[in-house]
């Protein structure tokens, strides 16, 4: 290498090496975290706290988003349907899209911002202030202490938050149909039930589980490998949000292909 200028070939080479290296790190982290699952005595007590901060604390923002999504969906559906199609299909559209798609994905994205960033920032701060090293010297496996409870909380609580958000979205869609669209409750419910299959709920829960896994894992990954000081933490948080948002959309498409 002469000087600072990289030839394109070198650039590609370095890029590839870095990608493979991150994959390796991710794999290492994953296997480590799986191994750390044994240390229940370390992550067990932490799980509850994480369930609160990942799950319970996320309910308000998720519900907030769902309220408006539900209303917009109802109005949008009625706008689209105006004409030859019966209005009760507004119920179908609100229910179907809220339960299977918008509930999980919008909530997932919001939580990718909230949970992904805070996870990366927390873990990243602990990394750059040597708290992770301190954990190790105190005979704690940092993966068991930091990563496992967060990821588990994500996997457990994302479905919880998303189920609540979807329900709220459907309810506000219903309310909007009654108040803004002059539909009757019976009409809305008829449309709601028309195409509902229990699999919709399973589908949403499966998606939510994977979103929870992805958001918390990605947050932990970037936090764990944060470098430098506050700047490094910021970079980690930003990357965590971007990458987990992208992965949520990719996963969404993946599940649609695999399960539908």
């Amino acid at each position: 290498m002469n000087g600072f200028v990289l030839t394109p070939v070198e650039y590609v080479g370095r890029w590839s090496i870095n990608r493979v290296r991150s994959l390796g790190k991710a794999g290492y982290l994953t296997t480590g975290a799986l191994r750390a699952l044994r240390n229940v005595e370390i992550w067990g007590p932490r799980l509850l706290t994480q369930m609160v901060s990942v799950g319970v604390a996320s309910v308000p923002i998720a519900v907030f988003i769902a309220v408006f999504t539900g209303i917009v969906l109802a109005l949008q559906a009625s706008y689209t349907l105006t004409g030859a199609v019966p209005m009760y299909l507004v119920g179908s559209m609100v229910g179907k899209s809220m339960i299977t798609e918008l509930g999980p994905v919008l909530t997932g994205l919001a939580l990718a911002g909230r949970v992904g960033a805070s996870t990366a920032a927390e873990v990243g701060t602990m990394r750059v202030t040597e708290q992770i090293d301190a954990l190790e010297t105190l005979a704690y496996d940092p993966l068991a202490y930091l990563v496992v409870p967060r990821v588990l909380a994500g996997v457990l609580m994302f479905p919880v938050v998303i189920v609540l958000a979807s329900a709220v979205g459907v309810l506000t869609g219903w309310a909007a149909s009654l108040t803004l669209l002059d539909m009757s409750s019976a009409e809305f419910v008829r449309g709601l039930r028309l195409f509902f299959v229990p699999f919709d709920v399973q589908f949403a829960v499966i998606k939510s589980l994977s979103f929870g896994l992805i958001v918390t894992s990605v947050g932990c990954f970037y936090g764990f490998h944060a470098k430098g000081g506050a700047g490094g933490v910021g970079v980690a948080a930003t990357r965590a949000v971007v990458v987990s948002s992208v992965l949520i959309l990719v996963l969404d498409a993946f599940w649609a292909v695999v399960l539908l």
């Binding site: 602990m126 202030t129 040597e130 708290q131 090293d133 301190a134 190790e136 010297t137 105190l138 005979a139």
Partner: peptide, 14 residues
């Protein structure tokens, strides 16, 4: 590690 105490530069308190 139980036999070793490590005092970090910035204490690294949680």
């Amino acid at each position: 590690r139980r036999d070793i105490g490590y005092v970090f530069q910035f204490a690294a308190l949680f």
